[in-house]
């Protein structure tokens, strides 16, 4: 790190990003926070209600259900997406035949429209003709046959599988680009010292991209807590709220139920939970590294 004597230069460097970001991201958020103290249907004038929205949310069973589902998404993402993506990136970073093809294919789900993802996975999970149950039947595990998306106890897990699948590619390319920064001299040196592939990966590669893995985990948590698109298109929170997450609940309350204050209060809570979780996680992981 350098000490720059001229603070104006730092200011000039950061200002453009700061201004755009503050005006078009932070300001709207804070306006939304302000709405969370109001009762407003969007048509009639707002009324200040203090903490009433928050009180109501904390007693709302659907909110807590959606919160629980969000936690499931976080766990699935952190323990599903990140390791799978990392393994894939480590494999495809080596000289594998067709690596470019596999790299492209790995990234595909990030690019495909959510509509197509939801249609095809709904077919895969379908209880009557779905591929999943068909395979179970073929390998003699018919007793495991389930109504994957139709059973409220299972639906959220089925959705989590799709979410993992959808975003592996995202972390995959982040890890890919990180792997490019691992200094090849150190790898060569390790090789000369007789380190095998595992040792090189474990002692050289992973530590040097650890920072990026942390970044990915943070991205994972924040992305999971505001996950919306796939669930909204695939199940719209059903059956019987079984796959409701905070963001879909907020959206329905705001734009379908016309409760802007209530919806805004949910988004404030999403924000607060994210900060809490990420700082806990950072503390824990940070300590482990040290």
């Amino acid at each position: 790190m350098h000490l720059l004597k001229n603070p104006w230069k730092i200011g000039a460097g950061i200002a453009p990003a700061f201004l755009i970001y503050t005006i078009f991201c932070i300001v709207p958020i804070f306006v939304s926070f302000y709405y969370s103290f109001m009762s407003w249907n969007g048509f009639s004038p707002m009324q200040f209600v203090g903490l009433a929205n928050y009180k109501a949310i904390l007693q709302d069973p659907v909110f807590w259900l959606s919160f629980r589902n969000n936690i499931l998404v976080v766990l699935a993402s952190v323990f599903g997406q990140v390791p799978i993506a990392l393994v894939l990136a480590l494999i495809l970073n080596r000289k594998v035949k067709g690596a470019k093809f596999f790299r492209t294919i790995a990234f595909m789900p990030v690019v495909i429209s959510t509509v197509v993802i939801s249609l095809t996975w709904k077919m895969i999970f379908n209880v009557e003709y779905g591929m999943f149950n068909w395979i179970l039947q073929k390998i003699g595990l018919e007793f495991l046959r389930q109504n994957w998306l139709g059973d409220p106890d299972l639906a959220m897990f089925a959705v989590c599988v799709v979410i993992i699948w959808q975003y592996v590619g995202l972390y995959f390319i982040i890890f890919m680009s990180a792997l490019q920064t691992v200094p090849s001299e150190i790898l060569e040196a390790a090789e000369l010292d007789g380190a095998n592939e595992w040792q090189k990966t474990w002692y050289v590669t992973l530590p040097s991209i650890w920072n990026v893995i942390l970044v990915s985990i943070v991205l994972c948590i924040s992305g999971s807590l505001k996950t919306f698109d796939l669930i909204f298109v695939m199940t719209s929170g059903g059956p019987a709220n079984a796959t409701e997450v905070m963001a879909t609940y907020m959206y329905t309350e705001t734009f379908r139920g016309l409760r802007y204050g209530y919806g805004s209060a949910i988004s404030v809570l999403i924000f607060v939970f994210s900060i809490g979780m990420i700082s806990l996680c950072m503390k824990w992981l940070g300590r482990r590294v040290a």
Binding site: Y21, I26, V27, I29, S32, K226, M250, I270, F271
Partner: peptide, 13 residues
Amino acid sequence: MGMLVPIHATLVP
């Protein structure tokens, strides 16, 4: 911090 904000909360503002 901006990563933590659900986009739909900001539509009306």
